[in-house]
């Protein structure tokens, strides 16, 4: 069964790797804090895809789904806290450009 599922697993991991690359690229080239959160979201989607694909190939989809659900919950909390920080920083500095955050006082 595992041998039959491997081509599907390559394909899913290939697309997950492309999503990881897009997410990291987005986080590296942008100075906009909201785009950073978009990068984190893409990384998370890639991880969920890879996780469920692996669970399907190993014949343990129940465990993969339960971990994916846990990950989605963590993702929403991370994004909510991140967006809260962005709004707070915007109110403080009037910008979402991370280069403007070099005047922090202790």
């Amino acid at each position: 069964m595992l041998e039959n599922m491997l081509p599907n697993l390559y394909l899913n991991w290939f697309f997950a790797a492309l999503l990881v690359f897009s997410g990291i690229y987005c986080m590296l080239v942008s100075r906009n804090l909201l785009r950073l959160i978009i990068g984190v979201e893409l990384l998370s989607k890639a991880a969920i895809l890879a996780l469920v694909a692996c669970g399907q190939a190993m014949g343990n989809l129940g465990l993969a789904q339960s971990i994916a659900i846990t990950m989605i919950v963590l993702e929403v909390v991370v994004v909510a806290v991140g967006l809260g920080l962005v709004v707070r920083a915007y109110r403080q500095t009037g910008s979402v450009d991370m280069w403007k955050f070099d005047r922090l006082k202790g």
Partner: peptide, 8 residues
């Protein structure tokens, strides 16, 4: 070998 399927 694939394990026994356990539901979510």
């Amino acid at each position: 070998p694939p394990q026994v399927q356990i539901n979510v």
